[in-house]
């Protein structure tokens, strides 16, 4: 029984998350307190979910891309473009509070995000470029586009409907959590209830054999890059809406790296093949919790990244089965001999 639990792909990610939360509990018991204020839930845990929403979204899209054996470095730039375009459209409109305007802005930026994903898909599946190079193009160019859109300034909006996306509340919870849940369910449904998941894993594990089995690898690859672009676009909306402004220079900066990390922590191999959406969500939560923790315990800003790197390194070590075996091998051998002795005496 224990063996089955510890072999589950979610076991180690959940253990790491639990360890992080436990640290917070000891360091500051108030971390876990959740209070209701004005019909909304407030507390650090809620904050983690709320602020982690964009990362989870990007990481879900990234999971599918990585499962096909690819990678998408351009998600950070797509986040910036989508936020910038939406904010520009809203800010230029006569009535920023008009729901129609906001919906149009959302539709346009999500459409653009899909186009970005399509561009990546064309380069990877159509032209046959290596994913890391193909998406590097949009990573660099996309940041430039976002800066063009914002003219290098920070565009601020004051629109209630737009603000609702990233800072609004539905029932007791932040609205962004519902967006994440919807996307997660949609991704899970698309991959596990249709044959898309099987095809993704097949293409990622062995592209040649998949083609010979009659799978349209190209459309599968197109689909995952488009989906990944769409996820990044939604993340961009949440992120910009949360602060009611778009910053072409800094929005979504390094998101691609955090997303890749979340996917890997979640147990999906960078070589492609098997993927774990739930693992990715836990991985993203680990990263967000870590970020929150670092701010909370007041690590000096200049060494924040070092601390984060160290924890990430430790997480990766714990995740590695080989490393765990090395650590526990001595202890195991001793246990094994003891068992043998006992059986001898009996």
């Amino acid at each position: 029984m224990w063996n089955r639990i510890s072999k589950h792909h979610l076991f180690w990610p959940l253990m790491v998350l639990a360890a992080l939360l436990l640290f917070n509990l000891i360091y500051k018991p108030a971390f876990f307190s959740i209070r209701i204020q004005g019909g909304h839930l407030y507390g650090s845990l809620i904050d983690i979910l709320n602020y982690g929403a964009p990362l989870i979204l990007v990481a879900i899209g990234m999971t599918l891309v990585i499962a096909t054996g690819g990678i998408d470095l351009s998600v950070g730039s797509i986040v910036a473009i989508s936020g910038a375009v939406a904010c520009l459209l809203v800010s230029k409109s006569a009535d920023q509070n008009s729901l129609g305007i906001v919906l149009t802005a959302v539709a346009v930026s999500l459409g653009l995000a899909i186009v970005c994903g399509l561009w990546n898909g064309v380069l990877v599946a159509g032209v046959g470029m290596q994913a890391i190079i193909a998406t590097l193009i949009l990573m660099v160019a996309g940041r430039g586009i976002a800066q063009l859109v914002t003219s290098g300034q920070i565009i601020t909006v004051s629109s209630n409907p737009y603000e609702y996306i990233g800072a609004g509340w539905l029932a007791l919870l932040p609205f962004s959590i519902f967006i994440v849940a919807a996307v997660w369910l949609a991704a899970a449904w698309l991959t596990r209830r249709t044959a898309l998941g099987l095809f993704i894993e097949s293409v990622g594990s062995n592209a040649t054999a998949s083609r010979l089995a009659g799978i349209r690898s190209r459309s599968v690859i197109f689909a995952v890059y488009i989906f990944c672009g769409l996820c990044a676009g939604m993340a961009g909306l949440i992120l910009s809406s949360n602060v009611s402004s778009a910053d072409g220079n800094n929005a979504g900066l390094w998101y691609e790296l955090d997303a890749i990390l979340a996917v890997v922590i979640g147990g999906t191999s960078l070589n492609g093949g098997r993927f774990y959406l739930s693992g990715t969500v836990v991985g993203a939560l680990i990263i967000q919790t870590l970020t929150t923790t670092i701010y909370m315990i007041g690590v000096p800003p200049e060494i924040t990244l070092v601390v984060k790197a160290f924890v990430v390194f430790a997480v990766c070590l714990v995740q590695s089965e080989k490393f765990r075996n090395v650590l526990t091998s001595k202890w195991r051998k001793r246990r094994y001999q003891a068992e043998r002795e006992v059986t001898h005496h009996v």
Partner: peptide, 28 residues
């Protein structure tokens, strides 16, 4: 290199071609 999908199970490897011919939505 051209036959098995190493990361998948025996079951998935068997149904792969049939599923591919049925497309995404007509699942088995």
């Amino acid at each position: 290199t051209e036959g098995i999908i190493a990361d998948l199970t025996v079951r998935e490897n068997i149904v792969l071609a049939l599923q591919a011919s049925r497309g995404w939505f007509r699942t088995i």
